[in-house]
Design a protein around this nucleic acid. Structure first.
Length: 465
RNA sequence: GCUCCCUUCGUCUAGAGGCCCAGGACAUAGCCCUCUCAAGGCUGUAACACGGGUUCGAAUCCCGUAGGGAGCGCCA
C-alpha cells in the first residue's frame, strides 16, 4: 500500500445507539475514502468496559450496514491492522506506555478521585482553568516505590511540556495554534491498566495508518494533546478535520427531546436509508446537486472544502423531502417490494399494480398507504360527512346508471357515458361513494384496484331512492 | 473562570474585494395543470448578528461588541 493511500475510519464507542451526528461523521469518512479510492476502517472504541455493551456493537454494525456504509476493515473483516477492538489491543499499547515512562514523558499518578475532584473545584472556584495540579509530577523513585508498597494503583499521566506552541492545519478550520501551558497533564492509562481515550484513539489512528480523520468539533480543542502524545511516540498523526456539530431545531445539541435522533428510530419510522444519507450529506456539507444521490454519486461530489464550520440544524421536513424524492424515484419493482409487506395476499397482479400506481404520488412513508388500503379493500367504509352529502346529492339515478354500466365494463369511460355526466359532476359523487371522502389519489387506478363486487356494493348503496 | 470554535432567508447552504440592491434547495404563499388531494410546472415572500475601520469599492480583509457552541474528566 502506498504511503499516500487515503485511509479513514469511524471509531464509535459502543455505549449507545448510532446517533445522527455520528452517522454523519461515519458517512463523511466513508465518502472521503471512496472518493479517493482509499479504505474505510471501522474501529470499536470499547476501552470503557463499564459502558460497553455487546448489543450496541451489533446494533452499530447493523445500522452502518443499513446505511450502506460498508467498511473495508473492522472487527468482522480482516485487515492489516487487527484487532479492531481497542479492548483487544492492550498488547500493542504496552510497549508504548513503557517507552513513554522510560523517556519520562509520562509518570505514574497516585492522586485519588477525591483529591482530583477537590483540586478541580478549588481551581474553578478561584476562577482558574481546572488543570491537573502536578502533585505526582516530580515524585522520586523512592516516593513512588513507597506508594506502590502501600498497594496504591497509579494511573499514568502524560507530561505536557512547557511553553510549547502546537500547530496543525485543520481540514475544515484551517491553521490552528495552541499553547501547551493551557493543557494539564492528562491520563493516558487508567488505574485499572486500560488505555484512556486520548491515548488509544490517537495511537490507533497512527498505528492503523489512518490518513484522514473527520470527527466532531468537540474534539478540536483536545487535538493538541493528541499531537503532543504522538509526537512523543514519534508516530505520524492523521490529518484532522473537525466537522460542526449537529443541533436540533432550537439550536441545542441534538438529543432525545428533539424526537427521532438515532438511525434506528428513523429506520423504524419508515425512512429509507437513501433518504437519511442524502439528508446527512447536506448537513454541514454543501453540493450544487439538488437531486437524490446514490452513495457513489455522493462520494464523487464530496469535497472537504465544502464542509461547513457552523453547526447545522437537523430538520425533519428536509428529511421528508429526500424520502419523498426516494419514493418517486423508485423503480416499479422496487416500489412493489417496498409496499408489498402491507398488501393483502389475496390481491391480483392488476390490483397490486393499480393500487401502487394510485397511491404512490400521495405517500411519503409506507405507513401512509395503510389508510388507502383500508378504504379500497376494507369491508366497512367510514364516510366523511361532506362526502356522504355529495353522494346523496348526486341522486339515486346517477348511481343506478353507474352500477348498470359496471355490469358491462368496470371502466370510468363506460360509467361516464352511462351517467351522462362529466368533470366534477361525474367524479366527485363517484369518489365520495367509492372512497367515503372527497380527496384522494386519482380515481381511475383506485377503481381498477378495487374488487368489482366492492365497487358494485358501494354504488348500489346510493342507487336506492 | 480560562482556552478554542462559530454567526448569510424559518432551515440546509452558494459566496474566497467589484460578476451580489446576494444565487440554489427545503419549508411557506399564489398561479397553472387537474374530478379532488398529491405529484409536476411557473411565480412570489424571505438573509449577509451589531459597531467601527481598511479600500475607489466589503457578505467577503482587520479590530471590537453581542449571541451561540465546545473543551478544560481515571466519558468518548
Amino acid at each position: 500500500m502506498s504511503r499516500d493511500t487515503v485511509v479513514t475510519r469511524f471509531a464509535p464507542s459502543p455505549s449507545g445507539e448510532l446517533h445522527l451526528g455520528n452517522a454523519r461523521t461515519a458517512l463523511f469518512n466513508f465518502l472521503l475514502a471512496r472518493k479517493r479510492a482509499g479504505r474505510f476502517v471501522l474501529r470499536i472504541e470499547d476501552t470503557d468496559a463499564g459502558r460497553t455493551q455487546e448489543t450496541f456493537v451489533a446494533a452499530l454494525a447493523a445500522d452502518l450496514d443499513w446505511l450502506g456504509l460498508a467498511w473495508d476493515e473492522g472487527p468482522d473483516r480482516p485487515g492489516a491492522h487487527a484487532p479492531y477492538r481497542q479492548s483487544q489491543r492492550a498488547a500493542l499499547y504496552q510497549p508504548l506506555f513503557e517507552r513513554l515512562e522510560r523517556e519520562q514523558r509520562a509518570y505514574p499518578c497516585f492522586c485519588s478521585h477525591l483529591e482530583l475532584d477537590l483540586s478541580r473545584r478549588a481551581q474553578l472556584a478561584a476562577g482558574r482553568a481546572p488543570r491537573y495540579a502536578g502533585t505526582c509530577r516530580e515524585l522520586g523513585a523512592a516516593e513512588r516505590a513507597a506508594r506502590l508498597a502501600q498497594g496504591r494503583k497509579p494511573s499514568l499521566r502524560f507530561r505536557v511540556p512547557h511553553a510549547r506552541q502546537i500547530e496543525f492545519v485543520d481540514l475544515v478550520h484551517g491553521r490552528q495554534r495552541f499553547v501547551s501551558d493551557d493543557i494539564g497533564d492528562f491520563i493516558i492509562r487508567r488505574e485499572d491498566g486500560s488505555a484512556a481515550f486520548f491515548f488509544s484513539n490517537a495511537v490507533d489512528d497512527a498505528l492503523m495508518q489512518i490518513s484522514h480523520v473527520l470527527r466532531g468539533e468537540d474534539h478540536l480543542a483536545n487535538t493538541p494533546r493528541q499531537q503532543l502524545l504522538l509526537e512523543g511516540l514519534e508516530l505520524a498523526p492523521p490529518q484532522y478535520g473537525h466537522v460542526s456539530l449537529l443541533v436540533g431545531t432550537d439550536g441545542t445539541p441534538l438529543s432525545k427531546r428533539h424526537g427521532a435522533t438515532s438511525v434506528r428510530e428513523l429506520r423504524e419510522a419508515g425512512y429509507a436509508s437513501a433518504a437519511v444519507c442524502n439528508q446527512l450529506f447536506r448537513l454541514g456539507h454543501s453540493t450544487p446537486l439538488n437531486q437524490l444521490l446514490s452513495l457513489p454519486q455522493m462520494a464523487a461530489a464530496f469535497e472537504l472544502e465544502h464542509l461547513q464550520r457552523a453547526p447545522a440544524h437537523f430538520e425533519l421536513s428536509q428529511l421528508r423531502h429526500w424520502q419523498s424524492e426516494w419514493v418517486h424515484a423508485l423503480a416499479p419493482e422496487a416500489a412493489r417490494r417496498w409496499l408489498e409487506p402491507l398488501l393483502p395476499a389475496s390481491l391480483s397482479e392488476r390490483q397490486v399494480e393499480s393500487f401502487i400506481a394510485a397511491v404512490r404520488p400521495n405517500i411519503v412513508l409506507a405507513e401512509d398507504a395503510r389508510a388507502w388500503l383500508q378504504i379500497i379493500f376494507g369491508e366497512a367504509l367510514v364516510f366523511e360527512e361532506p362526502a356522504l352529502l355529495a353522494a346523496r346529492q348526486a341522486g339515486a339515478a346517477f348511481f343506478a346508471a353507474a352500477a348498470q354500466a359496471l355490469e358491462e365494463r368496470a371502466d370510468l369511460g363506460a360509467l361516464r357515458r352511462a351517467t351522462g355526466r362529466k368533470g366534477a359532476e361525474f367524479f366527485m359523487p363517484l369518489r365520495a361513494a367509492l372512497t367515503g371522502r372527497l380527496h384522494g389519489p386519482e380515481l381511475a387506478p383506485l377503481l381498477a384496484a378495487m374488487p368489482a363486487e366492492q365497487v358494485r356494493a358501494r354504488l348500489l348503496r346510493f342507487a336506492a331512492p
